[in-house]
């Protein structure tokens, strides 16, 4: 019989976290089927390893061969990992996949992860995330001042620059905190995962997105474990990861559409809002300032940010004359 290669994988998510947790399982299934059982991947969820935000370390040390997580979680360890999930005012999903696979993104990501004996691959996309649930309407920049919002990471830094107060709340206490006005707003994902959190019952305003236009999850692979695989299994593994990522993007899109319909049915009063122009401009400027600071500190950061900016500039022109133009023209027909 042929040798069976067994890999272990740790995921950030708990055992039945929908969509995010489906992606690695889908990947493992595809890999096993394509290899006719020669490549088996065993997935441990956070309930087992208890280290949702320790995947980087676990895969790096070889405790696990692979991980499924999101690159921006490692920002505190390796600042340049921030740029491979999504960026405020950045690319949308098709543009970002273009950058990864054809615009030099994968090479830059490898450059960041290589010193740690790790390989990183796209791991599934949520699509455009919503801006979050707000208890009160945001009309002016003053409304943002002192706004207590659960918004972690880089986007939180952007809002902090505008005078908002990013706040840490344990995820188990989020619902109660928002319900009782301990915080004024929070961001989660989008309808696909927000529905079950129940935020639509307690916050009337659902703002459209600006800060996570294309959240890409991540497969991490320990380089030594990768090198032990024969070439054909390496190819099968990377193809499975790519396919599972694409599948997750579709699944997210579908679930968001479904769940949004459910939310609207149950709570027709949800008010979908977009931040006013001047607020978006201020956010974008704050975002740019932060990026400029990072770029000035580290040449690799600058290289990544320049590459993203250049790619987006090119791709957006196409997006505008294709998807945007199509939607605009079709919408005008509906009226």
């Amino acid at each position: 019989a042929e040798k069976v290669y067994k890999l272990t994988m740790a995921e950030t998510w708990s055992s039945n976290f929908p969509i995010f947790g489906d992606a690695p399982r889908n990947m493992a299934r595809i890999a096993e089927e394509m290899s006719a059982g020669r490549l088996k991947i065993n997935i441990d969820s956070a309930n087992k390893h208890k280290a949702p935000l320790g995947i980087f370390d676990l895969v790096r040390s070889g405790q696990y061969d692979m991980g499924h997580s999101a690159s921006y979680y490692w920002k505190g360890k390796v600042p340049n990992t921030l740029y491979f999930t999504t960026m405020p005012f950045g690319m949308i999903t098709p543009e970002q996949y273009g950058w990864f696979y054809h615009g030099g993104g994968m090479e830059l990501m490898q450059k960041v992860y290589e010193p740690f004996g790790l390989m990183s691959f796209p791991g599934g996309n949520t699509g455009n995330q919503m801006g979050g649930w707000f208890k009160k309407e945001i009309n002016t920049l003053d409304d943002l001042k002192g706004l207590k919002m659960r918004i972690p990471g880089f986007a939180g830094e952007v809002l902090a620059k505008l005078g908002a107060n990013p706040t840490n709340i344990a995820s188990g206490e989020l619902y109660t905190a928002l319900e009782r006005n301990t915080i004024d707003a929070l961001e989660w994902v989008g309808p696909s995962l927000d529905l079950r959190m129940g935020f639509h019952k307690i916050a009337p305003y659902y703002y459209t997105g600006w800060h996570e236009p294309a959240t890409e999850l991540q497969f991490l692979v320990n380089k030594r474990a990768w090198d032990k695989l024969p070439a054909d299994l390496q190819q099968i593994l990377s193809t499975s990861m790519k396919l599972a990522s694409y599948d997750m993007y579709i699944q997210s899109y579908h679930e968001s559409a479904e769940n949004w319909a459910t939310m609207q049915q149950e709570y027709p009063d949800i008010k979908v809002k977009t931040f006013p122009q001047d607020i978006l401009v201020a956010m974008k400027n704050a975002n740019q300032e932060l990026l400029d600071e990072s770029a000035a500190k580290d040449p690799l950061a600058k290289e990544i940010l320049d590459s993203q900016a250049a790619y987006m500039k090119k791709a957006r022109v196409w997006t505008n004359i294709s998807d945007r133009a199509y939607l605009d023209s079709v919408d005008s027909l509906a009226e």
Binding site: S14, S15, N16, P18, G172, Y175, T176, E179, R196, M197, G198, K201, I202
Partner: peptide, 12 residues
């Protein structure tokens, strides 16, 4: 809270 999460039922 945990059961709500695991079973996909709103905690409220």
């Amino acid at each position: 809270i945990i059961l709500g999460d695991v079973l996909g039922i709103p905690v409220g």
